[in-house]
Amino acid sequence: MIFKGSAWRFGDDIDTDAIIPARYLNTSDPGELKKHCMEDADPQFPTKVKPGDIIVAGKNFGCGSSREHAPISIKAVGVSCVIASSFARIFFRNSFNMGLPIFESDEASRAIGQGDLVEVDASTGLIRDLTTGGEFTARPIPAFMQELIADGGLIEHIRKRGSI
């Protein structure tokens, strides 16, 4: 699968309160959550982001609360995938469990500029900055987690295979 979209840059340690503030957690409706995605980090984001766009962040993206509302809001607002130099561990597993593609690459995280057109080949982990011509490779995804993505998330994985 190929993802292609404009990059939205964010810094280090973007926590899940910044991704989806707790004041909106009185619902888990994706249609509501997407209106506030990343709003405390960039109030313009929920209205200006376009389907397919890509979040590019620094280290420890998604730290803090375990709320799955965070990856749900990112998916619902139309972001195709997230690239970061590293992910906090609960956000990392949540993303695979519910089918939000994420890619770890320190080089890509440093090099890609705000608004650059970026293409990611999910099968090879190749990240290309089409604006600058830069090419980067994401850290390989463990086999089990590739299975989760192929099956469409953890629940579908269990339905298909009868167990985790």
């Binding site: 949540n94 953890l154 269990i158």
Partner: peptide
């Protein structure tokens, strides 16, 4: 350890979780 709601649903279904 803290996990997400989908992990929890999986544990409710199977009594199991995946761990690195």
């Amino acid at each position: 350890t803290g996990v997400g709601s989908t992990d929890l649903a999986a544990a409710m279904m199977t009594g199991q979780a995946w761990m690195k």
